[in-house]
Design a protein around this nucleic acid. Sequence first.
DNA 1: TATTGTTATACTCTATAACTATA
DNA 2: TATAGTTATAGAGTATAACAATA
Lengths: 148, 148
Amino acid sequence: MSAMDSHIGYRIRILQLRIFKDIYERMERLGMSLGAYTALVAIRENPGVRQGVLGAAMHVKRPNMTKLVNGLEKAGLVVRATPSCDKRAVELRLTPQGEQRIAAAMEDVCAHDSEIGQLLSAVERRDLMRLLDRVSDGIEARRRGDAR
Amino acid sequence: MSAMDSHIGYRIRILQLRIFKDIYERMERLGMSLGAYTALVAIRENPGVRQGVLGAAMHVKRPNMTKLVNGLEKAGLVVRATPSCDKRAVELRLTPQGEQRIAAAMEDVCAHDSEIGQLLSAVERRDLMRLLDRVSDGIEARRRGDAR
DNA sequence: TATTGTTATACTCTATAACTATA
DNA sequence: TATAGTTATAGAGTATAACAATA
């Protein structure tokens, strides 16, 4: 394993696994998968969002999006509606129960992230965000511009 | 999604996904899963490592470790051996073919990581590693010390 | 003909329980 | 009895192809 310690990708992987282990544990207690959480947050911020648009934003394939939304609907957290302008489409909105559940979940997740944030000073936090963005953007730019 | 942008955990998740999307593409061309790669690197550095010890290090459960090693064995990359001192145990070693495959794979992965590393200056790289470690260690410490 | 979403299906990863053979 | 590994199995998450309804 030591040969991998020097890899930035590996370090980031380890950190991400640790952070998400925490988050998954919280999600479990909230009775909600990470995918469900992400979807509910997005629907809350974009009421009436099309199922396909949400799936694209989440990088979830359409058939899998159907299953995810089915679960949310059965749990009474989300309702589907067909807009009259395009009867193929499906618009997603939170139910009152969905609003309540996601508000509680977000509070929990934000508290967790604040705890992580407090491991660093404000300056360090800003530096870390900046460095992560630099790497992230660089990878994207390389992917686009590179013939490979 | 915008509500999540400020979360360190979320940023790291995004970056990790981007880096590993690259790595997975390379793995695919090398005909090797990330788990297989990690195992082969570890066996190379620790010839004769016990299957259970490797599984613990990789955070892979025993039944899943069995399947992973089965695949490596069938591919002719790894051999299992039972030490005389404990006939329950299994020691893992690379075959010559395994040595060859993992050497090529590591070269490819290291080249990729160097490319990522070159997106930052030496000082920034050191800073990023330090900050990632700080957060990583802090999370671990909190997990251990917290009654939750 | 292209699209939005659904169904059916399969493959990978992961997780647990029950089993064997040793210790 | 405890441990190392295996088997069987089940659950997520993700991928593709074929389909229905609509545009």
